[in-house]
């Protein structure tokens, strides 16, 4: 199951980055977000998976697609890959990153903590969220209000 979701994630991300039509990229991004939701389920984060589908694949992507249709961006030209020095640096960095990723992939596990009963259930998540993390939670709500006001002010048509 992990490999299925991982393939969906990577494939969607590649489509989102490498296709030049923004709408096709948005569809790829939706696929990637749903794949990440699947990964969250595998990691016993059921509440986060639901929030991922509702908030990300739902609200955020509707917003992005709406703005894509609104501004109707032209097709981009080919990706600007130029400069022999930058290509060299990029190749070296890519090799290092691939080596590290491969090492992490081959090493795999490591010891896992025994899961307490009800790990990842909404009850346990809520206990953590409204217990130790209550103040950051309230600050996040303030952040969302600020972002909403900022979006309204920025997008308002000036007369």
């Amino acid at each position: 199951m992990f490999y299925l979701f991982a393939a969906v994630c990577v494939g969607g991300a590649l489509i989102a980055v490498f296709r030049r039509e923004p709408v096709v990229g948005a569809v790829g991004l939706i696929a990637m977000l749903l794949g990440v939701a699947g990964v969250f389920v595998l990691l016993h984060a059921h509440f986060l998976a639901v929030v991922q589908v509702l908030v990300y694949a739902g609200a955020v992507m509707v917003l992005i697609v709406f703005v894509i249709f609104l501004v109707d961006p032209r097709r981009e030209g080919p990706l600007p890959l130029r400069g022999i020095i930058m290509k060299g640096f990029g190749a070296i960095a890519a090799v290092f990153i691939l080596l590290e990723v491969g090492r992490a992939f081959l090493r795999g596990g490591g010891s896992r903590a025994e899961l307490p009963a009800g790990f990842g259930s909404i009850e346990a998540f809520g206990e953590a969220l409204f217990g130790a993390w209550l103040l950051p939670f309230e600050l996040v709500s303030a952040l969302l209000v600020v972002a909403m006001v900022a979006a309204l002010v920025l997008a308002k048509r000036r007369t």
Partner: peptide, 20 residues
Amino acid sequence: QVIAFFVMALAAAEVATGLA
């Protein structure tokens, strides 16, 4: 998981202001 939840809220705020 709680921090990931906060990151999601942050991403929503970022997208809203960015798109505006």
